[in-house]
Every structure is written in C-alpha cells, then in structure tokens.
Amino acid sequence: MGDSKSSLLVLGLGNLLCADDGVGVRAVESIQRDYQTGEAVRVIDGGTLGLTLLSTFDGADDVVLVDAVAGVGPPGTLVRLAGDDVAPAVRNRLSCHQVGVADLLDSLRLLDSYPERLILWGVVPASFELDTSLSPAVADALPTLVERVLEEVRNLGYSLLSRRNAIRDAPIDPAAAPGSRPVRV
C-alpha cells in the first residue's frame, strides 16, 4: 500500500472540445481545484496526448485513469475496471482520442514500467459531438465520479489534503508539509 516512497498518478483523459469525451479531464480539474497535490499524488490533465504522456508515468507505482468509457449502460453510468481489464476496455472504445491509451499501456509494458496497480474510473458518455460542455447525464454523474476517484485514492493508501484545510493548517515550516511544493515567489 502507498508507503512513504510510493507515488500515485491520477490521469484524466479525453478531449475537452468533444463534450463527454472530456469528462476525465473535468474530473481531474475539479480535484486540482479543491485538493493540494504533490509528488506523492500527482493529478494530471492528460488530454489526448498519447505517447507524450509516457513521461507523466515516470515514477508512478500506481495509476488511476479517469475517462469516458463506451457501452456498458445508459449515459452517466459509472464504471470501475482494474488491472488487466483496463487495457482491453480502452483498446476498443469509441472516442475522438488520437493515439490511444492502449498504446501507452503497451509502451509501459515494453519499458518494464507498467504500474503495480492500475485502475480505470469511467463514465458512459452520451455525446462526443463538438461541444465544450458535458451532456446533462454526464454532468450529473461528474460529482459522484470525483467522489469515487477520491475514495479510490484513499483505498490505495494515499491521502489528499483539501486546499481549504491545507491553507488553514499551513505548517510554520513549509518544507515539512506533506506533498508540498516550494512557495511561489
């Protein structure tokens, strides 16, 4: 479990211009807005960048992907997949992504950098049309998706501090804060 040396990557995937395809990125944006992240838990908007994302996996022992996943229920249905079930799900799904997540996972395997624990949290999309907002069904599911991802982070043994608490409880010695970054000057 996430001991002091472990590191978790929470990676939101999808295209913000293609309606529900961007739900993974929306979830990640919400977490970035409300929580303090650091080296132990990195929360990243991966967009549709394909192989360029390989560098974001550097040092990640555990990975939680957040994405739109087609075809397992009505729009807005949440989906959780783990381990070897993740790759086939992202290999076949419909999306306007380019070089896929499957290529990324294959590449990690080839480089012997496959994450120890890999989890996918997904939502069944209603629309991939050109639109910068989510469909109503998926927009309704977004807060629950975020909760599930946060729960997953905790279950994996990592902790995230809410920004509100982080600010109020800021330690007098900033370097001692867990997951802290140098203060911007």
Partner: peptide, 23 residues
C-alpha cells in the same frame, strides 16, 4: 524501445519551458 525511453525524457523540456506538463 530506446526511442520510447528517450522521448519520455526529452519532452521534459516542455515542463521546464511551460511550467506544467503536458499541456
């Protein structure tokens, strides 16, 4: 395989230049 490894290192130049990788 080497190119896979190399590119994931090299693109860190964008993190230096852009403040936030990958966007």
């Amino acid at each position: 395989l080497e190119a896979l490894d190399w590119q994931r290192e090299f693109i860190k130049i964008h993190a230096v230049l852009g403040g936030k990788n990958p966007h």
